[in-house]
Design a protein around this nucleic acid. Structure first.
Lengths: 245, 245
DNA sequence: GATGTCAATATGTACGAGTAATCGACTCGG
DNA sequence: CCGAGTCGATTACTCGTACATATTGACATC
């Protein structure tokens, strides 16, 4: 009985990462409201069946991400969302399966519109030949995986990552790491729209970057984002137009 | 002798944050090279004169920021910089006083060029009247603090923060938190250029946003960034043009 | 020469005890 | 009646010790 196995409902599993994820998820998903005081360390100890050290290390990590703040006597309080490092890949991944709201999707598309076309311009200017080769290769793979939903998503992520790596900008790469998880959240909402209609746009981006045409690359990526926006608007309907007007 | 007081050279001070900063600085500034194995936990214990729990909590936080990865028997290794969360305000702040390199400044200005003009557009569209009032107020304060170097920088930061808050985008706000620290690093380099010539550009931004003119706001912020780039190029000289060609 | 085994080592986990900081209630003086 | 200072209780914070576990590198075996 390994006891490290864990159902989806799971609470067990004794390692550090899982405790961070467990408490982190409960916070991000609102099981603990903003301003609320978390249970005492000792309560987590018995509830999760781990040592106090593990609980403390987990809370310290969450504090470093801006989710909580601990104080003697008062306890550990959930900070307002403005303090959360919302681009942190961990925090974003804890929302997977949550059906994110329209506000988040608008914020994400705003950010994508600022970042991704500009990143394509940099990629077109700075990519090495081997990087261009990789980008073309991943674009082909994308077309090939058209009928395999999870494989398509994975290929999409790799494509985006290769694009950002070709921009040769370390700060940008970190933003892209967050956007990548954001994309997964976005696709959870628009999954019913399929993804076949996005393949051509991906290929257009790959072509333009490969041709080192900065202007075409920017334009192609903008159109790709527009497709995402169209999908989101179709799924959300009024909740989306309320947000963008 | 409280022993919590700490000289600039300081090593003491027993609390958690300081230990994170101490080890974090040593990593970010290259005192521990990428790929290198850090001293064992026990060595940090005697070196920093703290308990093992504090050391472990610190290393866990650094691991969550992508700086290190711990493994039994091998020890704790410094990860390649591509894994670092380089936009994390903590990581950036640990570089203060380091005289950052041309590569970092180019990456930062790239990012600023993508983000800040677009953020001004959003601010012009979405800001509430009280937020516009705050922005104008901070711009005036900026002019008033012209001859006080540290006060000017603080006012500059508050101005930027108010601008990004007015964009009403949580993800963007986190990017701005990183950029803010990046700006401090940038100004450490260009401090010799003074800041008087940037005041008018700031006021132009405030005016355009206040007038809710998205296009003027975008343009004004772009020009403000261009001023920064000019200053950086003047200070760095060849090291900068090598980077941008 | 490839593979499996074993011991050494550093992190991982748990428990216990004591310190220090913070908050809330209470008391005292105005 | 109200404000300032005091006191006690609660909780996080720190430290120390002991043991478990996983990974590595060397050794032995086939």
């Amino acid at each position: 009985m390994s006891d490290t196995t864990d159902a989806t409902t799971g609470t067990r599993r004794k390692n550090h990462t899982s405790v961070v994820a467990h408490i982190g998820r409960d916070i991000v998903r609102g099981n603990y409201a903003v301003g609320e005081i978390l249970p005492r360390e000792e309560e987590f100890v018995e509830q999760l069946e781990v040592g106090r050290g593990v609980v403390r290390e987990a809370l310290r990590v969450l504090a470093s991400k801006g989710l909580v703040e601990a104080r003697p006597k008062r306890g550990t309080q959930v900070l307002p969302t403005s303090n959360w490092q919302q681009l942190d890949p961990d925090i974003l991944s804890w929302r997977l399966g949550e059906e994110v709201g329209a506000k988040f999707l608008r914020d994400l598309t705003d950010l994508r519109s600022m970042i991704e076309p500009a990143a394509c311009v940099l990629a077109a200017e700075r990519a090495t030949d081997t990087e261009l080769q990789l980008i073309r290769s991943l674009a082909r793979e994308l077309r090939h995986a058209e009928d395999d939903e999870p494989a398509f998503i994975e290929a999409d992520m790799q494509f985006h990552r290769a694009l950002f790596q070709a921009a040769h900008n370390d700060l940008l790469l970190q933003v892209s790491a967050g956007i990548e998880v954001g994309l997964r959240l976005s696709r959870e909402v628009t999954v019913s729209m399929g993804h076949g209609h996005r393949i051509d746009a991906h290929l257009a981006v790959a072509d333009a970057v490969s041709a080192r045409s900065a202007s075409r690359a920017r334009r192609a990526m903008s159109e790709l984002i527009d497709l995402s926006i169209t999908d989101i608007a179709a799924v959300l309907g009024g909740a989306w137009s309320d947000m963008t007007d």
